[in-house]
Design a protein around this nucleic acid. Structure first.
Lengths: 348, 348
DNA sequence: GCCTCTATAGAAAGCGCTTTCTGTCTGGGA
DNA sequence: TCCCAGACAGAAAGCGCTTTCTATAGAGGC
C-alpha cells in the first residue's frame, strides 16, 4: 500500500515525531538524524498525506485564487502573477510549498460562494478574489459573511480589483481606480474635439462597470457635454460588435465609442469596419485594460493601462503574509492613459 | 470554536455516523432524520472539514488542471471548459461538489512536477494535464513515473493536447492533430503559389512545436519545395515580432510566414507592417489555434482551428469518469483549416 | 403468533499526521 | 566532581471524519 510516515520512521529508526519534524522543519533535529530521515523518504518515495497533515495541523497549504473568467487574459495575467509570487514566497520558507490554485467563477455569484465554501472546507491558507463583483446587496452580504467566516478561521483574504468589503478590517484590498482611468480617457476624447461619444458598458450590475461609467460621465459633465448612447453587455468581443449597431442606430452622428474594455473594443472596431467606417477617421475607439493584443489591433488601441501583473504579484504576496496589508485595508491602484492610433480628432 | 460534525449530531439527536451518511448520501437515511440533520447543519452553519473527510475516505474532491500558461487564452479556454464540465458532472452526483483548480506551470517541468506532487499529496480525485510537454527524456520519464503513481493511488489522469505516455494504459489522452493541421496550412500556402515560406516555431524542445513543424515540412517535401528559414521562440507576440526580422534577414524574398500560433502571428504582422510590407500583398501570414482575437486581426488571420472548448469539456468529463476513456487510450482531435484575409497569392 | 428479512441507526475503530509533554543525554560552570 | 541547562528524541493524545460491524424495530410470510 501507500507509504506512510510511520514506514519512513521505521526505516530511519526514529520515531514518527522526528520524521514529522524533519519534514516541517520547525523544530531542531540533529543533522545526522535529519539526513537519515531524508534518505529514508527518498528511498521509500514517500509523499506526505496532505489531508492527514492538514487535519492535524488545522491548516492546509492551499491558496485559492477566484477569477471571473479564466479565459480572459485580464484575469489570466493577474492570476499568473499571483501564482508566481506565491510560489516565490513559499519556496523561501521551510516546508512552505503552497498549492496556488485558480478557480473560475464565470462571474456567477453562486459559483463564487460555492468555491468559497469548498475552500473553507479545505481550510485554505488564503483566498484571493480577483475582479469586480456583483452589486446585488444580497450577494454582497452573503459574500461578506463568508469572507468574515474565512478570516475568522485563519484564512487570509485578499481582494484584487474589487472594492473593499465595508466594515471588514481583516481583508486587504487592491482597488483599481477605474473611475479616474475612465475619466482621463473621456477627457482625452473631449480634448480631441469629440462631442458625441457612445459607450459600450459591461454588465449593468457590476462594480467595475459602474465605476468606469461614472468616470466617463464625470468627464462629460465637467465639460458640459451631453451623454451619448450607452449599451450594456458582457465583457466580450461579441458584445462590442453587437452594441455598435445599436449605438449607431441611436446616434448615427457618433464620432467616438468608448468600450468597457479592450476585448469589447475589438468587437466595436470590427463592426465599424464592416460598415465602412474608418478608425479613427470616422469614429474613434477606445478600450480599457491594455491587454497584450491591444497594441496589435489596427489601428492600435487607445486605452487605459492597468498594472495587472504588478497587482497580481502584490495580491499574491499579501495572501502569503509576505507584505504588510495597506493601512486602512485598501490601496488604490491607478491606471494610465495610453494614447495610440485608434483615437483622433473627429473629421468634421 | 468551529462547529464539528459531532456538534451537528448532538443537535440533531443522532449519531455522528448518521450525519456523515446524510452529508454523503451514500446510505439510506429516513427522510425525517435526514431533514432533522440538515436543519441542524443549517442552524449551526456547519462546514465539513475537508482534510478530515479526505483522510478518512482516502480521497479528496480536488481536481487539478495543469496548464502551461494561464495568461494564454489557448489554455484559458480549455481550462474554463474543463472546469464547467467538472462542475456539471459533479452537481449531478450526491455529495459530489468538486473543487476544480487550475495550476499554472509556466511551461516549467519542475513546476509541473511540483504541482503533481502537491496534488498527489492532496489525494486529488483527478488530474488533467493540458498542453504539450517538454521532450527531454529525463523529464518525460519523471512525469510518466509520477503519473503512474497517481493513477495507482486512484487519481484519474487525463492528458489534453499532449501525446499519450507510452505504455501507460491508465491515462486517457486527447491529442490535437497538430501535424495534419500544419500540413493543411502549408498546403494552402503552396496552393496559393508560395515557394519561399518562413516559419516562426515554438520552443524547440516541445511536442507541439515539433509536430507542427513536421506537418509543415511534410507539406513542403510532398510538393518538392525547399524549406524556408525557421526561427524558434516562445509562444508569445514578441517572439513573432523579433523572429520576423531574422526571417527577413535570412530570406528577403519571403512571400509567406507561418507562425507557431495566433499570438505569435500577431507579432509577425506587427513587424511586417512596421517595415512597410503589406499583408497579404507582400507577405502572407498564417497562425494556429484560432483564438478569439484572430478574427479581429487586420487582415483576419488564416489559421487552424482547434476545438479547444470541446476538448476541455471532454477532458473534464473524462476526469470525472463521466465518459468512457477512448479505446486504446487516446483520441486524435483534428484541426480545421480556416482561411481568412491574411493569406493570398504572392504578388510576383 | 413466531421467525426472518429489510430498513435504519449507533458504536467504535481507525485514517496518517502534528504536537505537547516527557524524558535522556551531553557539556560546561561552580 | 556534581548539577543544571540545553539539545534532541520518543510516547501518546488527539485532529474530525468515514465505515464496518452490530443492534433494533417493524413488516411480512408461514
Amino acid at each position: 500500500m501507500t507509504v506512510t510516515l510511520a514506514d519512513v520512521a521505521a526505516r530511519a529508526r526514529v520515531s514518527p515525531a522526528t520524521v514529522s519534524r524533519v519534514l516541517n522543519g520547525n523544530y531542531p533535529v540533529a543533522a545526522s538524524t535529519r539526513e537519515r530521515v531524508l534518505r529514508a523518504v527518498d528511498e521509500l518515495d514517500y509523499v506526505l498525506n496532505g489531508p492527514a497533515s492538514s487535519l492535524a495541523a488545522a491548516t492546509s497549504d492551499l491558496v485559492g485564487v477566484l477569477v471571473n473568467d479564466i479565459a480572459d487574459p485580464f484575469f489570466g495575467i493577474m492570476a499568473s502573477a499571483a501564482q508566481s509570487a506565491i510560489g516565490e514566497v513559499a519556496s523561501g520558507r521551510a516546508g512552505g510549498e503552497k498549492l496556488a490554485v485558480v478557480c473560475n467563477t464565470g462571474g456567477s455569484p453562486e459559483r463564487e460562494l460555492t468555491y468559497l465554501t469548498l475552500l473553507q472546507r479545505q481550510r485554505a491558507a488564503a483566498v484571493i478574489l480577483m475582479g469586480g463583483s456583483l452589486e446585488d446587496p444580497e450577494h454582497l452580504a452573503a459574500t461578506a459573511g463568508k469572507l468574515a467566516k474565512l478570516a475568522e478561521a485563519g484564512t487570509r483574504v485578499v481582494l484584487c480589483g474589487r472594492p473593499p468589503v465595508p466594515g471588514d478590517a481583516h481583508t486587504a484590498a487592491l482597488v483599481f481606480d477605474n473611475r479616474t482611468g475612465a475619466r482621463l480617457l473621456t477627457e482625452h476624447l473631449l480634448g480631441l474635439g469629440h462631442r458625441r461619444v457612445g459607450y459600450v458598458a459591461g454588465p449593468a450590475d457590476r462594480t467595475t462597470t459602474r465605476h468606469r461609467l461614472e468616470g466617463h460621465r464625470a468627464a462629460l459633465a465637467a465639460a458640459g457635454v451631453a451623454e451619448g448612447p450607452t449599451v450594456h453587455g458582457p465583457y466580450d468581443r461579441r458584445s462590442g460588435y453587437e452594441a455598435t449597431a445599436e449605438l449607431l442606430d441611436r446616434a448615427p452622428d457618433l464620432t467616438a465609442v468608448v468600450a468597457a474594455n479592450d476585448t469589447v473594443a475589438l468587437g466595436v472596431c470590427a463592426a465599424l469596419r464592416e460598415r465602412g467606417l474608418s478608425i479613427p477617421g470616422d469614429v474613434s475607439v477606445a478600450g480599457f485594460d491594455d491587454l497584450p493584443f491591444s497594441v496589435d489591433a489596427v489601428p492600435a488601441l487607445t486605452t487605459v493601462r492597468l498594472p495587472l501583473h504588478e497587482a497580481g504579484i502584490r495580491a499574491g504576496r499579501l495572501a502569503m503574509g509576505a507584505e504588510e496589508p495597506p493601512a486602512g485595508g485598501s490601496v488604490t491602484v491607478p491606471g494610465e492613459l495610453v494614447v495610440r492610433g485608434s483615437t483622433g480628432a473627429p473629421r468634421r
